[in-house]
Design a protein around this nucleic acid. Sequence first.
DNA 1: TATTGTTATACTCTATAACTATA
DNA 2: TATAGTTATAGAGTATAACAATA
Lengths: 165, 165
Amino acid sequence: MVATEAPGLSLTEALVRLAHLVQQVYGDVSREHDLTPQQAQLLCLLVDGPIGMSGLTRALHLEKSSLTGLVDRAEKRGLVARVRDARDRRACLIELTGAGAEIATRAHDGVAARLETLAAGLPARQRELLTGVVGAILAEDAARTGRTWSRPEPEGPVAAGVNGR
Amino acid sequence: MVATEAPGLSLTEALVRLAHLVQQVYGDVSREHDLTPQQAQLLCLLVDGPIGMSGLTRALHLEKSSLTGLVDRAEKRGLVARVRDARDRRACLIELTGAGAEIATRAHDGVAARLETLAAGLPARQRELLTGVVGAILAEDAARTGRTWSRPEPEGPVAAGVNGR
DNA sequence: TATTGTTATACTCTATAACTATA
DNA sequence: TATAGTTATAGAGTATAACAATA
């Protein structure tokens, strides 16, 4: 695999098809772990620590009521837990349970492994270039829309000892 | 925008975030045209001509019963029509209505325009390289799984005069 | 008043299983 | 028997609107 010519493939077509492929990988891996793609996305977002509902709505681009349902179902399945936010009694933080963390890690690794496999044939220089170009596109979008595709920044001093329970 | 360094972004992370971005664009554009993303995807697949239900299940990676519902709703909204396949009386072909074709074109162009905007800052060489690399990844997936991301090939002689109705 | 989150409601999307009709 | 598609059913995902509690 050398990535030479693009046989009649436009840039936008390429991006759309690539997105479908990644989505398919996500769906396949989720299913292997008995998760829906949305649950897998939620879990992967939480691996670095708890996030509040508001932060999650921004990260997932969902209405808050949609998120309530998503978290409800994940909580019912024992994947996540709601913990009260000590600093704001209206708010809560969503954190992974032990089981949730384990599944999240496996799902994340599974997706990474499959994508790595697909990109395995690319020369290192092309891999770097691809990463860089995608980074530039993401940055352009972030500058344009204010969207962030990583974890939302905590908006205040980080909770201390909130996990006490 | 010059696409220089990738600040701590791995290749797989980059691909996942790019996929989310494209999906978001798809969702935004769909909504502008009062479509669900799934309906938009269906419509865009049909712009080059009618496809049978079986071909659509392969192209969309859906169970046939899921597709029945999707087509039902699109048909109820006047976007597509089922036409009998003259060569196989079990089968039917899904085609765009006039209204459906118009919306499909606008949605497709809308997605393309937004993605073009995001990539507008990239030098031509990087654009070409991105397209080529993505093409290679898609080819790798196709070789690995047999998946096809373009229109399904018609499996027999193309219908002649099927639209007669 | 504004923000955080939930509830109520109505659709859409999806899969599994069972079915009909045709090949 | 196998294939093309539908129906029945159940659950998940999503949005809008109205609400409660807290800031």
